[in-house]
């Protein structure tokens, strides 16, 4: 399938979901749909760097929360349309990605990972001390009652997130099959050899770090309106980092499908567990699934499927 066809398919999916949405009367569906789409976006963004290039980012929460808090700040100043907030969020998180990448990507991947882990902590300290966006006591936002085209605002947020998620998946698939994608695979497998065969490794790593960070920032920008109250502990929740790593690894990190499968599966599991068991047990399930998969099925569900197919 060409990239254009795939993109059109994505567009068709959005339209189909929008039409289906006309029939939905229960707000909860949009709330849940938003969560799924948000995780598809985050997992896909993480996978650009993690799955394709093999560089593990533990700082998803930092990039995500930065998008959310920049959005709070800009909204307080100008109250621009949501799209502007999303772009500003992307810009801010992309810039942080660029700075982090520039400083640490020359070293082995593990040092980049440790730096991202520390980034999450420092970003939380910054936001906690940033009184303008509520500091440690958090920020309240008035969620508009209706979306710009009728329907509730949550419904509108859901479509916005859906468009971004589908866009990210289409982008990931384009990258995967492009020259960049092959270069990233070379970096993941053997960076030194890739470099010896003409792959500009540092430039490619920087490019996807910025792109990945920017997408995470975009995912965070609508969050303040979705939750209506945002405080540092919830915005920087470790669950974001764990989920965005667990999802691609469980689905299969070397393809665009992996994060999508992982995101849908894990959000479904968590929504169910949240209702039936406790929220702590819920996190336990994610952690256990993740460790089990990376230990026993390093290529995730997609890898298992490929294994079954090649044996058949």
């Amino acid at each position: 399938m060409t990239n254009l066809r795939f993109g059109l398919l994505g567009l068709a999916l959005i339209v189909a979901l929008w039409l289906a949405g006309r029939l939905v009367t229960n707000e909860y569906v949009f709330f849940a749909g938003y969560a799924v789409a948000q995780y598809i976006l985050l997992a896909t963004a993480w996978n650009l760097l993690g799955g394709y290039a093999g560089y593990v980012n533990f700082g998803t929460a930092a990039f995500f929360a930065l998008g959310a808090y920049v959005s709070v700040a800009v909204n307080k100043l100008f109250e621009p349309p949501l799209i502007v907030l999303i772009l500003v969020g992307a810009l801010a998180s992309g810039a942080v990605g660029l700075a982090m990448g520039y400083l640490t990507l020359k070293l082995r991947g593990v040092f980049f990972s440790i730096a991202t882990l520390a980034l999450a902590i420092v970003a939380q300290a910054v936001v906690t001390n940033w009184e303008f966006v509520g500091g440690s006591s958090g920020a309240y936002l008035l969620r508009p009652t209706a979306g710009p085209w009728g329907g509730s605002y949550v419904e509108y947020l859901f479509y916005v997130m859906l468009v971004m998620a589908v866009g990210a998946v289409v982008l990931a698939r384009c990258i995967e099959r492009s020259k960049i994608g092959f270069g990233l695979a070379a970096i993941r497998d053997d960076e030194l050899v890739g470099e010896a065969y003409g792959v500009p490794t540092l430039r490619l790593k920087l490019l996807v770090t910025v792109l990945s960070g920017a997408l995470m920032g975009m995912a965070g920008a609508p969050l303040p309106f979705y939750v209506a109250y945002l405080d540092p502990p919830s915005a920087f929740n470790l669950a974001y980092a764990v989920n965005t790593i667990a999802m691609p690894l469980i689905g299969g990190a070397s393809t665009w499908v992996g994060p999508v499968i992982g995101a849908v599966l894990l959000t479904a599991v968590q929504e169910t567990a949240m209702v039936t068991i406790s929220s702590a047990a819920n996190l336990m399930i994610v952690g256990l699934l993740m460790v089990l998969f990376i230990s026993l099925a390093p290529n995730g569900i997609m890898g298992l499927l490929r294994g079954v197919r090649s044996r058949a």
């Binding site: 092959f182 270069g183 070379a186 497998d189 003409g198 792959v199």
Partner: peptide, 23 residues
């Protein structure tokens, strides 16, 4: 390379493709 160092997750054809695309 003296000890073969293929790109392990890529097929044989794609191993060549990386070199061809970039160099």
């Amino acid at each position: 390379f003296q000890l073969p160092r293929p790109f392990g997750s890529l097929t044989i054809a794609d191993n060549l493709k990386v070199a061809m695309l970039y160099a």
